[in-house]
Design a protein around this nucleic acid. Structure first.
Lengths: 134, 134
DNA sequence: CCAATATAGGACCTGAATAGTCGTATTTAT
DNA sequence: ATAAATACGACTATTCAGGTCCTATATTGG
């Protein structure tokens, strides 16, 4: 079925939370996990990934935590997905493997239908920002 | 990650195939499976489901097969997904179970973020027709 | 009427991916 | 020094989609 992975879901929830409280406040993985009833370790990993990519800033140590690193108006859902899912193709690649371009591309009856769906999805998620999902 | 299930994929491929050859011709699961290199049994089940819902007509017996039951211009991808996935919610339901309406809905910080994503997805797939993915 | 061919559909198996857990190191404020 | 936080790799468990198998039923044509 069509679904976002929990990781993406958790990432979006955390980003949204930060975007809703734009005071530059610092949030810990612990409090976010508690607030949204998300397994702490899992959320922590997602936040670490987002931090590594600069979407959020991390502060280590006692009064540490995370804070939004980007304008939520300019941060697309697509970008978040790509980071968390590490750029895996979103729907389907050509079934033909190895070849760097599918040899039967122009008559390919398989790739095309999903290609259109894929393209529309990409457009949708590229346009959708964190600000919008608040 | 974000992806269509194989069932939906196969269903769309089959519908698309029929829509591309509008002669009212009958296609067997076998030939479609061969043409697109899809496991026969799996495709067969998908087609049966589509037939049960009236999206395609089925003809049993020797010269049987399937034929398109709807105008591909009026058949949305959303409809196909809903039938094949049996109306499962596409992204996430409210985490609170049991209650027929979530008691903290108006302040619900969990349901909302994905709700917007969900809504946008629905809109996208509602607008997208089989005709368009040809 | 019989055989071949097709759909109908239930039961089951399996592997990969996802979700979740654990342990440990490191950083930093007090 | 200690407590509280992030960082991160390794591991386990579980779920579920994908796929297979088997049998029943319908229909056509010879």
């Amino acid at each position: 079925m069509f679904q976002l992975s929990k990781r993406v879901e958790y990432g979006l929830i955390a980003l949204r939370h930060m975007a809703m409280h734009p005071t530059g406040q610092v949030y810990t993985a612990k409090e976010l996990a508690k607030e949204y009833d998300i397994p702490y370790e899992l959320l922590a990993k997602v936040l670490q990934k987002l931090a590594r990519s600069g979407l959020i800033f991390s502060l280590q140590g006692v009064r540490g935590g995370y804070t939004l690193g980007q304008d939520p108006n300019k941060l697309s859902v697509a970008h978040v997905i790509r980071i968390i899912e590490e750029e895996k193709p979103m729907i389907a690649e050509c079934y033909v493997e190895g070849a760097d371009s599918c040899s039967i591309f122009d008559v390919c009856t398989i790739r095309k239908p999903l290609g259109k769906v894929q393209r529309n999805l990409n457009i949708l998620f590229d346009k959708m920002t964190i600000q919008e999902i608040i």
